[in-house]
Design a protein around this nucleic acid. Structure first.
Length: 283
DNA sequence: ATTTTCCCCTGCCGGC
DNA sequence: TGCCGGCAGGGGAAAA
């Protein structure tokens, strides 16, 4: 499922293809994609617009137009944004919206689970805030996401640390995969109360989040299931997973068997020795 | 305010 | 073989 590295991969690819170009046509095939907006009104608002740049905050992708308005998209679980140099030969499976670009290329939003969403955002900071609210905090790859920021966000919090780093208002972009990987690298058990982390653990976790996301971007994201980039290609991060989806396998650090459980309503993987639940133990 | 639960939606998989 | 229940999970709303 697309998390920060996957969305960033798509952003970079799309920026190269449609940056500076004009949207010639827009078709919304699934009204749920733009709910509660009217699909035909949505199409009309997109047609004829010039793309200034593509931006990303957390897992949200923004196509910014030259007048400052923007199309915001979230791929949720199974969304794909596919770019093709020309109209695809046949119908794209699970296509929910199609953007025709003025050079003849096509961007298709495909999404079997239909969880993905798109919004049309007004220009201007205050109007944007009114329409958009405060869905996301600081982006995990932004220089503004610091160890100090993370530590302050965790103070006195009793919820599981995994739930807190999945909270997009604390840090935007971390999803289930990279949460497990970062917690393993930081040697922090996913069920530890957020406020119980020591300063050293907070620093390790901050570094680990950045490290794993950076690696995910470098290899084009994780494709153990449906994720594909804008060209329909798979990423390579699934081959570099340390613990995620590896229950029963030996820990890459200490060879202890990796466990699986449920934390924050998500399938969660960890090494019980490297990531002790009780304080004082070390691996 | 914080934490937890439920729900959306559909493909896929294991069990019978 | 085929049906079916359960699971997967991002995030937002609702409940606790």
């Amino acid at each position: 499922m697309p998390e920060l590295p996957e969305v960033e991969t798509i952003r970079r690819q799309l920026a190269g293809h449609i940056g500076g170009r004009t949207i010639a046509s827009a078709r919304v095939l699934d009204p749920l994609l733009v709910d509660p907006e009217d699909p035909s009104a949505f199409e009309q608002r997109l047609e004829g617009r010039s793309v200034r740049e593509l931006r990303r905050t957390g897992k949200y992708l923004f196509i910014e137009f030259d007048d400052g308005e923007a199309l915001a998209m979230h791929l949720r679980m199974t969304g794909q944004l596919l770019w093709t140099p020309a109209e695809p030969d046949g119908p794209t499976p699970y296509a929910r919206a199609v953007l025709g670009i003025d050079d003849g290329s096509v961007v298709t939003f495909a999404d079997p689970r239909r969880f993905g969403r798109a919004w049309f955002l007004p220009a201007g900071r205050s109007a944007r805030t009114r329409a958009w609210g405060k869905r996301t905090g600081v982006d995990a790859m932004s220089p503004r996401f610091t160890s100090r920021h993370l530590g302050a966000s965790l103070e006195r919090r009793t919820a599981a640390i995994k739930a807190l780093i999945l909270d997009q208002r604390i840090v935007a972009g971390v999803g289930n995969i990279y949460a497990d990987e970062a917690l393993f690298r930081a040697r922090v058990h996913p069920r530890r109360p957020g406020g119980s982390l020591t300063p050293a653990e907070v620093r390790r976790l901050h570094r680990a989040i950045r490290d794993r996301l950076r690696m995910g971007i470098a290899v084009g994201g994780a494709s153990f299931d449906r994720y594909r980039d804008a060209h329909g290609s798979r990423g390579g991060m699934q081959d570099l997973f340390l613990v995620h989806r590896r229950q029963g396998e030996p820990c890459p650090r200490c060879r202890t068997t990796i466990e699986k459980g449920v934390v924050a309503q998500r399938g969660t993987y960890w090494c019980p020795k490297c990531q002790p639940l009780e304080m004082g133990e070390t691996c």
